[in-house]
Nucleic acid binder design. Structure first.
Lengths: 227, 227
DNA sequence: GTCTGTGAAAGTGTTCACAGCG
DNA sequence: CGCTGTGAACACTTTCACAGAC
């Protein structure tokens, strides 16, 4: 995330920790999965156990936003799904623009997991003239200089950046200038964005580094230490 | 991450928080970027500022692992890069297996960001007979029933799972049985893995949900104010 | 009895602020 | 001086434990 953080003068009424929002997404996936299997209610301890959290954690997370549970029963899955979607803002449709139609961009255009969560890839842009005019998964590849116009026209609020690292900041600047208010950035660098525009960075090599560290740590402690 | 967590009997010598390891990756990227631009040393405050962290945060994170700084000077970039790579375990080459050669799998095979960080995609598997035998980015697509054999043969330690959600757990089980000790899972569900095998989950829709929440929150507080 | 929601306690992580080194 | 490394203070998160609802 980004936005202003350092100058935090007074305690705002309800600043929800990013970690809570992250877990909300996990709860949502699990609930959607449960519903598909015909399960109608679930307790905080059952939900937590499936995801590796404590029951109290689940209840506290949800308590940030209201009282959704039913004492003696648990949570009704469909009800809680609606509530979490409302909290996350995915009870409506979000139009998303993709910038960069390389390997990763194409995969994002074809990804089936966006639509069920309320995200529609409504436009794709690339700077390569050879790609422009082509269609991938029904989405036409447009030139960068039409970005501003199309983002406004199609009421696009979020952007996906899948360009090489060197071009990512420029892509972000264009999206922001066009009115986009949130960006998921797949380039391995931190974007500099104005206040009021959120970013989430996804660095594929970083994800591998995290597991590599865990594995390397285990190897080290396994060799040098008892447990 | 996964591994055992609930039954944590005694305080281990140095349990490094996952958040620290995450930031280590960010520091590493930034340092690599700085070196490319000819910068040789950097202070904790400069490094932190570029990534949105405090100077103390940077120093504390690094202090978990040793004394890498030079008072009055800062950190020497190339030195710190080596140290962080050693800590993360990426001072050596990791062989990685990909399971699932769909849109996303192909993008991962073609991703240029893995090699510079020490990760080599050494094998790719798919269950679709039509794909088997094909080559993508120089990597041959192999059938699932050769997974165990090839993982052993090529000394593969990490796996990337890019199959549909319904097949992800099976893919994980096969990788684990073959000896893989860490998995990055792109399917939107939590894998059940034995102790000693780490996982990092990357759910693309979840990343969008995180920015959607931030944007929606800003809209709400901007429109209604009070809350 | 089961399960939620929630204050209070425990535990973690972050920032402060300064001694000490180059 | 500038900057690191670090104990101490602070803030935040998680867990505990129990009153109240079904």
């Amino acid at each position: 995330m980004s936005s202003s953080k350092p100058p935090s003068p007074r305690t705002e009424p309800a600043a929800v920790p990013a970690a809570v929002v992250n877990r909300l997404s996990l709860y949502l996936r699990e609930l959607q999965h449960l519903v598909q299997h015909g399960i109608q209610t679930i307790s905080s301890s059952q939900l937590g156990e499936r995801l590796g959290f404590s029951d109290a954690q689940v209840r506290k997370d949800l308590a940030h936003f209201g009282n959704f549970g039913h004492p003696g029963v648990g949570y009704r899955c469909d009800e809680l799904i609606s509530e979490i979607r409302r909290i996350l803002g995915t009870d409506r449709r979000w139009s998303v623009a993709l910038v960069g139609v390389g390997n990763l961009g194409r995969a994002l255009l074809g990804y089936r997991g966006f639509a069920p969560q309320g995200f529609a890839l409504a436009a794709a842009f690339d700077s390569d003239p050879a790609k422009i005019g082509g269609r991938i998964e029904g989405v036409e590849i447009l030139p960068m200089d039409r970005l501003s116009e199309v983002v406004a026209e199609r009421h696009i609020d979020l952007g996906l950046i899948a360009v090489p690292a060197a071009d990512a900041q420029t892509a972000a600047d264009r999206l922001v200038a066009a009115g986009v208010r949130g960006i998921v950035n797949f380039a391995p660098l931190a974007l500099v964005l104005p206040d009021g525009v959120s970013q989430v960075g996804v660095d594929l090599a970083r994800e591998l580094e995290q597991v590599a560290f865990a594995v390397a740590s285990r190897l080290r402690s396994g060799q040098t230490n008892g447990q």
